[in-house]
């Protein structure tokens, strides 16, 4: 009996998380386009616009270029979307622990964030056209440059947890959620974790391939970069994948830095049944995800022009890298000297 329940749970989990990721991701994309327009003084599209876009893309012809390796070209978007959905299984969704808690930790999530980029990149190479190859190379350079600060930030936080709670699994997200990082750091540690937060926000912009770092799909330079040869339903799947990744990155940052719940605050004023507090926490989680997505995607898209390719590497390996190492040193000093 237990195995049947377990099998059902495993089969249902991706669908639940997939539905959440896709729907909320598309809603976030709509809000993002609306807010970008409003910030530029324009009226902006209706909130349902991403759904219309996908429906239209599903209706268009799905061209497979002559130079393309057919099976990889078609498989790449599917693998990308599937990998993005599986990443959500290891992330805590609002008040609920990760659906696969105890089966995947932060390093697994770090690599699962890479798999969709890798799949689209392989698809871009498989298309065999010069624009898509150049786009895919730039995406690879972007992935290399993002890895150093991302790894440094995750290792720094995990090291901090391993020195405070030696018993707990330092890389598991439940440790991050159960004891938020801000409560058990001294003054230096606070500055260090602040730096890490800023670097993580910059990283999520480049992880999503948004404007300051969208060297891979640079519209004006290489007209669509990796996605040049994708049309019709393939492009629709990539559009949905991009929406899901916004939710993935925002949930990761929310779990690492803002795992706070709203219901305890309200609970000491008015008695809350369990269902009510869960829904409040869930809505608070959705609001936090929107806030993070707003800061990383919309604000950056409106405020910054695109970086040059080697400047991206210099930024991430230079400025962001040194910032994370400085944050690591601050956290180490905070642990040893307890300031």
């Amino acid at each position: 009996m237990m195995y049947v329940l377990l099998a059902l749970y495993i089969i249902a989990a991706p669908f639940i998380v997939g539905a959440l990721g896709i729907l909320y991701g598309m809603v976030l994309k709509g809000i993002d386009r609306k807010l970008t327009a409003r910030m530029q003084g324009r009226v902006g599209p209706p909130l349902r616009q991403p759904f219309y876009d996908v429906l239209k893309l599903l209706e268009k012809e799905c061209i497979i270029p002559e130079n393309a390796v057919k099976w990889l070209f078609n498989a790449a978007p599917l693998i990308a979307l599937a990998a993005s959905i599986t990443t959500l299984l290891y992330l805590p969704i609002g008040p609920f622990p990760p659906l696969f808690s105890g089966n995947g930790d932060l390093i697994v999530i770090l690599y699962l964030l890479e798999v969709p980029c890798l799949a689209i990149l392989a698809g871009g190479f498989a298309a065999g056209s010069p624009y898509s190859t150049v786009g895919s190379q730039r995406e690879m350079v972007l992935m290399i440059s993002c890895e150093f600060p991302l790894a440094a930030a995750i290792i720094a936080l995990a090291w901090k947890y391993s020195s405070i709670y030696p018993g707990l699994k330092a890389f598991s997200l439940t440790t991050f959620v159960n004891n938020p990082i801000w409560n058990n750091v001294g003054v230096l540690g606070f500055i260090g974790v602040g730096i890490l937060l800023i670097v993580m926000l910059a990283l999520s912009t480049s992880g999503l391939g948004r404007l300051p770092f969208d060297i891979a799909e640079a519209g004006t330079e290489i007209s669509g970069g990796m996605l040049v040869e994708y049309t019709g339903r393939n492009l629709g799947i990539l559009y949905i994948n991009d929406a899901v990744r916004v939710v993935v990155f925002a949930t990761l940052i929310n779990a690492m830095f803002f795992p706070y719940k709203l219901s305890p605050l309200i609970a000491n004023y008015v008695a809350l049944p369990l269902a009510a507090s869960l829904t409040i926490d869930f809505l608070f989680y959705l609001f936090k995800v929107f806030l993070i997505a707003f800061v990383t995607v919309t604000l950056m898209r409106v405020a910054f022009p695109r970086y040059r390719v080697d400047d991206v590497v210099k930024f991430y390996w230079g400025i962001a890298g040194l910032a994370t190492l400085a944050a690591l040193i601050l956290i180490v000093m905070d642990t040893f000297f307890g300031w």
Binding site: N67, L110, L118, A122, T133, M140, E147, F148
Partner: peptide
């Protein structure tokens, strides 16, 4: 382990390069 993770992405980068130049592209 920071250096170890960065090196593993660079490994991925060089094998993507081989994958593209040897296997992908027109026939």
């Amino acid at each position: 382990s920071i250096i170890a993770i960065v090196v593993s992405v660079l490994t991925l980068a060089s094998f993507v390069k081989v994958f593209h130049s040897a296997f992908m592209g027109p026939k």
